[in-house]
Write a protein that binds this DNA or RNA. Structure first.
Lengths: 190, 190, 190, 190
DNA sequence: TATGAATGAGGTTTCATTCAT
DNA sequence: CATGAATGAAACCTCATTCAT
């Protein structure tokens, strides 16, 4: 992704926050402009349409998520530690960026999502998928499609983060590690 | 839920289908009216507003889901069988009613959801929650909040159904039972 | 053309007048609505878009022109009288309906025109074309494509009417009949 | 007209072509800039506004038309030959410059036209008008206002050129000379 | 001179909702 | 109960124009 112009970034960030508050439908371009501190027309300098803005916002969040993950990866840890690190660092990213979580969940359940090129959608899944692939080869994980397993793991992270953010339950360190353990137990060879 | 008038039901069903196709935003009342074979004004005899319609549609889907689940429950089975039955019957309901799945997913990730009274939202979860509660008491399941576990199980069902419906992966009988097994392994005491 | 709803007609007539005053570009839908005494949205009940409105307005003017011509035709006159009647009655229609003249001239010279189905465009020309065809067969007129001759005659009428309406020259009865005579002389076999 | 700067000319020519393709309304300044290979702001160094640009474009086309006519005039020909030369050379100019024809026709039928100073509008008409004036004095032409006759002749040329360019009819050398003959017959004293 | 990002008024169009029939 | 024409606020988007560089 190219270096993003100051205003373009302001527009993306404003949209992200507003969608968390009000949803797609409740976020008119005029509000985005106001929050980003630009004129309405300026948005159309950077994005062809509202649809394009939302599509690019999805890519932008994927990019941010990816960036955040890269910082946490280390090679010098055993396999189970690697899984826990991945699970919890993703979890914490969403906890710290609830607007991203909320947006992604709205997006993937909207008619926008199927119109995205597939390879981009799955970019973020790939790292976990490959990790699980290695585990399968080493006989640590179940003999099941690695796409399937990685999606199930991803989904567990999202679900846990949503529960926490919505305040339905308060998850402490103990609960988090138990959840990661749950998912580990679910995919490891019994 | 009261016995539903012919036209009211037609409106609900039309809305359900249209939202699956086009999303919330792409489903104007005029289209609902057309698909339901009624006049636009008629919708307002049954529902105060579009918001009300969507809120009631959520309750309606919850009701349908509940109805479908009741048929499958039997008492004379052991605990693990009971879990598998619950997991797979929910899964099959969503496979057979993709419009319900799609609507619920859109709904719970929209600003409508937080405005629902909580006790209703969780009605459908309760049966699984109680089931898991019993398992916990019997020492079969982990010592973890039963709400948390039931949500994680629920989420796994939804995720699996979405993958199948989207056609990203084709899940046969073998994969389904492996997924149920995965979730069983995740919550059982190791 | 079907019987036109009261409001639909008001919209068409308002558009006609406004386009004469301000041109296509200077005639926003809001102004049309205001002049027609309807809400902006109402226009879209009768017309899909501004383009559609303008296209239908063209058909409407063609219809009005045709209606006006039918009143004047009589069979019991000799050939040259028939020509003069056609020329002058068309001329007078435009003089009495300058907004129609102005609209048609804008329309046929705009990118809208080529998008019209041809057979409709030429409907109004047909009567003159057939008349000239008969004259050709009888050896009264030149041996030249009758489409070509009818267009040249039509164009002479439009041009004369425009001069008169713009006030560039004042054309009295004498000038009118001289102009009709000119066109008669131009197409008759010398 | 002064010697035209390179870029100014590029802007005028681009506007001319774009208006032929898309009409006034379909020709935003940004498109003109792009086609002319200049920045949007640059246009405003040469023209005060879009209106000014279009007004000056009209003068520019009149200038080009006049230039083209001058080449063809010769003194040593008899009167009827002079008429035919004028008619056909104008006709051929428009055939070779359809964008000019299209622009002028749009322009004179738009609200721009009445705002032009009259003497400039008629500059191009003058040459024909004077020619006809001489014919009238010599008793060759009808005893009718020479403005009127010159406009009718001019209009016949435009009409013929439009038919040819639109491809409605294909006019060969024979048809062209018949048309010129028609107009000659229409204005000559019978 | 030349640029092009930025502006914001104003355009077209949508759509939830009403109400006379 | 049912209709659907009518409403008008508000949405998305365009584009002539400006101005700091």
């Amino acid at each position: 992704m190219e270096i993003i112009a100051e205003k373009k970034k302001a527009i993306l960030e404003s949209t992200l926050k507003l969608i968390k508050e009000n949803g797609f439908h409740g976020t008119p371009m005029s509000l985005v402009a106001k929050k980003a501190g630009v004129a309405a027309g300026t948005i159309y300098h950077y994005f062809d349409s509202k649809d394009t803005l939302i599509m690019e916002l999805f890519e932008y969040t994927q990019f941010r998520l990816q960036q955040a993950m890269l910082k946490n990866l280390r090679e010098d840890m055993d396999f189970k530690e690697g899984f826990f690190l991945r699970w919890t660092s993703r979890y914490h990213f969403f906890i710290q960026n609830p607007d991203v979580l909320f947006f992604i969940e709205q997006f993937v359940n909207s008619p926008y999502f199927p119109r995205c090129p597939q390879e981009r959608n799955e970019r973020i899944q790939n790292e976990i998928k490959q990790f699980i692939g290695i585990g399968k080869e080493q006989g640590v994980f179940r003999d099941l499609d690695q796409n399937l397993m990685s999606i199930m793991v991803h989904s567990s992270i999202i679900t846990a983060a949503k529960i926490q953010i919505d305040g339905k339950l308060v998850l402490g360190e103990n609960e988090i590690s138990q959840l990661a353990q749950m998912m580990w137990d679910s995919i490891r060879k019994q």
